[in-house]
Design a protein around this nucleic acid. Structure first.
Lengths: 214, 214
DNA sequence: GCAATAGTGTCTGTTAGACAGTATTCC
DNA sequence: GGAATACTGTCTAACAGACACTATTGC
């Protein structure tokens, strides 16, 4: 009988901050050794029979201090199998993404995707390797996109999120055409409320009800 | 302490058969319960500290009866976490791909990708879910493509492989342009040897030496 | 009106898809 | 020459990228 492997679940928790106009990743200082006090992605050991989705929520609530309801969507990214990645012994790490909303949590520290500080374990590598995967999901994976932007959002916010994930701000006209092709996403004629500094109010986009049965 | 999860590695082993002009998946009857005698993807339990690549090779050699050298490339697909997928208890399955060449092996049974028989466990689902992922790797993932087609190949074989994976036979001119854009792939002026039934000999394509440092 | 923000029309170059026509081989 | 196979040139539609111009708001 082969001795079984430990499996941990490490989560890239993303939150869109409309005020900062950017997407943020949640990290937290580790409570225990190894790497006690150092920042790390929220991660937990996968329980026997536990679903990945449940472990993801457990990591986000337990390690970042968020409410379970604030997790709007989750999904897989990749698996990291470097045996020496955890000093306690060989541990498989399944990297997942989660989109969250609402209050920022008790212990979470939020950083821009292109400005994540040095993290414990191989978490720097996980973030670096998974960033292109995340950028690829925007406007392609409806659950991811809707989870990040919420039930309805403005063109300006869509531009901000795209810039945060891809590193490149698209032209509004081009992004509009991209969004027109996203299934379940509808351009409304409503305008958002006036801006603090003036300027034309942006258009509102909404997910059709079937598309977001989260 | 949380009781740890069992992790199995299930492999979609692909082989291009130039005579049958199609890509084949390797499956084998299970030697032990559960599902003894039924066909299944080659799979093994992941050992403690074992790399996924090594477990993939172990599955292909042990369960399909192929030589270790016949595995030309491997990579990740997705993770399946349905707790009831294995009657022995909750088991995580990491699905991986492997490309193989050479003799077809002692126990392996080979089927066309669009004609895989009913399989044990949730392996039907794994094949169905992963097929689009595999089609997406062709001409994009150089290791995958080179592993499947080998060091050099003809335009006709490229057409056959593309048709097997995507279900659609492209026009030669269009595939040629796609291949012109694949980094490390070079169109030669050589022609393959004559065909059994006559006809113009196809052009040969080669990977540049840096591209295939497998 | 001016600054600030947002949306629209249109042009360009690239790519995917399609197909007729041509080339090379065996018999 | 005819059947079988393979390659080439070119046309069309879709798409990404770019940008000038117009529209709406607060001051």
């Amino acid at each position: 009988m082969i001795e079984s492997t430990l499996v941990s679940v490490d989560v890239i928790a993303l939150r869109f901050d409309p005020d900062a106009r950017t997407v943020l990743v949640g990290v937290a200082p580790r409570a225990q050794a190894p790497f006690a006090g150092e920042l790390a992605l929220p991660g937990v050991l996968l329980g026997r029979g536990e679903r990945l989705r449940d472990a993801t929520t457990r990591a986000v609530t337990g390690k970042l201090g968020l409410a379970g309801e604030s997790v709007t969507a989750t999904g897989q990214l990749a698996t990291f199998d470097e045996p020496s990645r955890d000093p306690r012994g060989p541990t498989l790490s399944i990297a997942l993404w989660a989109t969250v909303t609402g209050p920022s949590g008790d212990v979470a520290v939020w950083h821009r995707l292109d400005d994540v500080p040095a993290l414990a374990f191989d978490h720097d590598r996980i973030v670096a390797d998974c960033r292109p995967l995340l950028a690829d999901k925007l406007w392609r994976d409806v659950a991811f996109t809707a989870g990040l932007l919420g039930r309805e959002f403005t063109t300006a916010q869509a531009l901000d999120v795209t810039e945060s994930l891809t590193g490149d701000r698209p032209y509004p006209a081009n992004l509009g055409r991209t969004m027109d092709r996203v299934p379940g996403l509808e351009r409304t004629t409503e305008h958002a409320s006036a801006l603090p500094k003036g300027g034309r109010p942006p258009l509102v986009w909404k997910w059709s009800s079937e598309a977001v049965r989260a």
